[in-house]
Each structure stands twice: as structure tokens, then as C-alpha cells.
Design a protein around this nucleic acid. Structure first.
Lengths: 264, 264
DNA sequence: CATTCTGGTGCGTGATACGCAACTGGATGC
DNA sequence: GCATCCAGTTGCGTATCACGCACCAGAATG
């Protein structure tokens, strides 16, 4: 069900299988040895040994003795080391935190990950009405402000890939028409920021702006998001300016000196 | 620095090596194939194939073509799936977010991970003066409020293990004496919460309370932290009560019905 | 209480992951 | 500007090692 065709993976067979186990657990949440074996198409004993090795490194964890397996905290440890080293997060965090305090809304940093937006870091605003923590989540590109920014500045061809399939409708206001989306993205390139009002969830509004790396390409997107009743149409443009400014500061910290250059 | 001797790891050799590569990268940040090979004690070609397989799954990433390797965003993806499934985080997040809004300080959820505290999730408060994001970080048990809670309620023997080595001094106020620490932990068990003032960083104060699982054991610790000038001595007890209440609510969501039972 | 799941474990064998050696291409030396 | 060195990368043959088999132990189902 719903698996992406990744038949290319070669490399070391057993390692490849072990990593597939991690992906399976990420997708299904909890699996038994037999289920894993079935999914991989190997013998149960093979699956067991793979899982046991993963468990030695705390990457998977067995609920109760002789129970099913799920991802372990070793994964969180690794991720902490990963994001700590990622330049975008390291430089973006203080700026994002300040922005969150200024506008009082939740700030997120997301990057382009294949055909989705991957949320790397989040700084909460002052509101009690707080959206969930999106860190580590992946969300479709056409329904969020971050996604629109990332897609607008993405390498040519990516847009066609994304719009090749059907665009999932999340709410009534989700943009599901490719032509309509293309127009929006052109507007994003023009203004330098993107918005999304009630497009992913009803009552959720967001503004996002691109973060440029030293080489001038867009490496991430910075957004502020909050409830629609607070991020009203008139306030949105003011917040957008702040988001753009914050994103520009992160960009300059990453060694970007130029001005936004379109169509490059 | 500070590596633990893990010679027990058996299982599937190549998988074991591949996972060791991930740990090495987490520790060193960036490594070349030859360095990895030297650390593992294998041939360069072997290390290369392991890394290549990891790269196929986005768990490592090569900077520029023919460059060094670092951890990849696949790790972040996995971690997102991991924490999303962890009961403590799932149940703790809404409660923690509300607490963060109420007290206006940063809220963290941490668990006991070997001999350190592992920070799983963070909900930022209203202040612009915001501590770093600690998610995924591991910190010594004796210098933070979360660590004290986790150590106080830890299985017997853990205290001796931790105090067997020397307790690292972070600031002037860090508790580095084992007897002094034992007293504090007893007080923690007595009051039901722990504090740490200027013990990890000067100017950083925190309060933490235990989260109980359905079986009555402590599964996590919930803390509120902020600048010492704002979390003054008189305010601290009030905040402590709120933290304790929040932690208790998370506990009940996890299926814990009893009252705190000491020395169980 | 038989049956049938489950996770877990020795063991022999053949697939496979390993080390070797050679290739490539950038950096350094002189 | 050529030689040298060291980096990451690749084909190949072989010995290792990871695999599947058979089997064990406990839980759940009937």
C-alpha cells in the first residue's frame, strides 16, 4: 500500500534491508518480526537478526519482552546531532526565535525534501492557541506557505513533477488546479513571499519567505503561522514584511550577499 | 570524546558497522571515507560501500561531489516519525504547550537515556529571551532540574553509577558532591519536583516534575525553564506547582491513576 | 489440550560483502 | 608544469558471513 518505488537501492544488501526496516517502522509505527520479514521478503530469522542489530544501537525498541518493535530513541539522538550541524537551523534559530516573539506567532523552518516540505525546526509564539509541533513532519508542497516558497524557487521541472499527480485537497480553499498554482508561484517569485489561508487546515494561516544560501539558491523557507482570525488580511502584509526581513537575515548569515535574483 | 565502550554489539556485522558510521558522524559531524574506514578498522572500499548504502536512504549526505560525509535529512524524517509515536511526547505536547503559555517560559520533556537526560520535545514560552532548542540533546543528570527528577526516581543503583565518576562542573553552583546530590534528590522525592538555579548555565533556572506511566514508574520529566532574573525564588514555587500539575495531567493521560508512591 | 500463532536460536552452506589493486581527479610539492 | 600524494570510487575473486532451514519456547486461539 502506498509505497514509493525505490528499486534502485543497491549497496550492501543487509544494510539496505536494515535501513528499510527503519523506514517501515516510520511508516507503520509498530511491527512484529514476522510482518517485517513479510514486507522485506526474507525469512523471519533474517528479519529478527536485522532488528536485533538495530536494537543494539537503540534505533529500534521492543515494547515489552517478546513484543512488537518500534523506532527507538537512538534515532532522536542522531537527529539532534544532525540538526545541530545543519547550517540553516543553527543560523535560523535565533532569528526565528526573535521573529516569533515579535509577531507572537509560531515560526517554522522547512526545506525541500523530494516532493514535500520537511519541517526542520519550530519556534513557538506567544499564543496559547498553538499549532502542533511540526518538526520532522513532511507536508505536501501546494498547501502551505513554506511549500509554495520552496516550490516556487525549486529547480525547473520540479513543478511539473509535483503537478503530474493529483494535488490533494485538504480544505475547500486548497489550490488543486495546476494552472492556478503556477500563477500563485509566479506571484510568490514576484513579491518574495507566499501565503496560505485555510488551505491546509481551516483556521490556519501562514506567511513564508525564502532563505538563500551562499550560492544564491534557496536552501530553506521561513514561515510564521497562526490562527486565521488573528492573522487577518490587513495584518498579513505587515507580518509578511517581517518574515521576509528575518529570512533575509538568515540568508546573510549563511553567506548570501546578493539581492533576490529571479529566474536565475 | 567520552565514548562508551560498546564491544558487545554483535548481530549482523555489516549492519552493525553501518550504524556505527552513523554514530561516528553524529560525534564528529563530518568525516571522509578514509577516516571512517580507520575508525571502523576496515578497508576504505568497505567503508565507502557502507556510506553509499546509507546515502541511498538519505541517512548520510555528501557535501559536494567527492567530498566528506555528514548525517542526512533522512535522520530527521525518522526522528519525526519516532517522536510522533512516542506516547510521552504525544500526550505531553498539548499539556506542555498550555503550560508554556501560562507561565510564559520554555517547557521541555526529557527522558532517562542511559546516564544522561535526553530532551525529546520543547515548547517555547512567550519570552524573546529564549534558550536554545534542546530537542535531541543529551545533558548530564546532575546539573539540570529534569536530570535531577529522572535520577531521583531512577532504578536503584543508577545513582551510584552516575556518581561513580566525577560530576562535571558547569558553573560555580553546579552540585558536584555526591552526598550533596543525594540530599537534593531525597528532597526531590519528598516535594515531588526539582529545581536548578544557575547550575548548568549562569542565569538559567528551571523547575521539573516527574511524569508517571501506567505502571507507576517515571517515564519522563517535564520542566519549565527561563532566565534566573524572571524565575526568582519567590516565583519559583508557584511555577513549580503549575509544572507539577501539568506533569500529573500528562501522567493521567498515560494511564496513571495512583498517587505518587515513593520507594516503590 | 491440540493447534497455530508469535519471537528467538544453533547450524551448515552458498550468496555476498570483504580486501586487494587499480583508477580518477584535485591538491600539494618543487 | 610535471611528479607525487591523497582523496573518493570501482571490478574482481575469494573467504567470510549472513542467510534460510529446522527447531524451541511461550502466548493466544479454538
Amino acid at each position: 500500500m502506498g509505497n514509493e518505488g525505490e528499486r534502485d537501492s543497491a549497496g550492501v544488501q543487509s544494510v539496505d534491508r536494515a535501513l528499510s526496516v527503519l523506514k517501515l517502522l516510520a511508516r507503520h509505527g509498530e511491527l512484529g518480526v514476522s510482518e517485517i520479514a513479510a514486507e522485506l521478503g526474507v525469512h523471519r530469522s533474517t528479519a529478527f537478526r536485522l532488528v536485533a542489530t538495530l536494537e543494539n544501537h537503540d534505533l529500534v525498541h521492543q515494547n515489552d519482552e517478546r513484543g512488537r518493535y518500534r523506532l527507538g530513541i537512538g534515532v532522536v539522538r542522531l537527529a539532534g546531532a544532525t540538526t545541530a550541524r545543519l547550517d540553516v537551523v543553527r543560523e535560523g534559530r535565533p532569528v526565528g526565535a526573535r521573529l516569533a516573539a515579535e509577531v507572537g506567532e509560531t515560526v517554522n523552518i522547512a526545506i525541500l525534501d523530494r516532493d514535500e516540505a520537511l519541517y526542520l525546526d519550530q519556534m513557538a509564539g506567544t499564543s496559547a492557541l498553538q499549532a502542533h509541533n511540526w518538526t520532522g513532519r513532511r507536508i505536501a508542497l501546494h498547501a502551505t506557505s513554506n511549500g509554495k516558497v520552496l516550490l516556487a524557487y525549486a529547480p525547473t521541472g520540479r513543478f511539473e513533477e509535483v503537478t503530474a499527480g493529483r494535488l490533494t485537497r485538504f480544505t475547500e480553499r486548497t489550490v488543486t488546479d495546476a494552472a492556478r498554482l503556477r500563477e500563485e508561484l509566479d506571484a510568490v517569485l514576484d513579491r518574495g513571499y507566499a501565503t496560505a489561508v485555510d488551505e491546509l487546515e481551516v483556521g490556519l494561516t501562514a506567511v513564508a519567505a525564502p532563505v538563500f544560501g551562499a550560492d544564491g539558491t534557496v536552501v530553506a523557507s521561513l514561515s510564521a503561522s497562526g490562527p486565521t482570525f488573528r492573522l487577518t488580511a490587513e495584518r498579513l502584509s505587515a507580518v509578511a514584511a517581517q518574515v521576509v526581513a528575518a529570512a533575509a537575515e538568515v540568508s546573510s548569515r549563511l553567506g548570501w550577499y546578493g539581492r533576490a535574483r529571479f529566474g536565475q
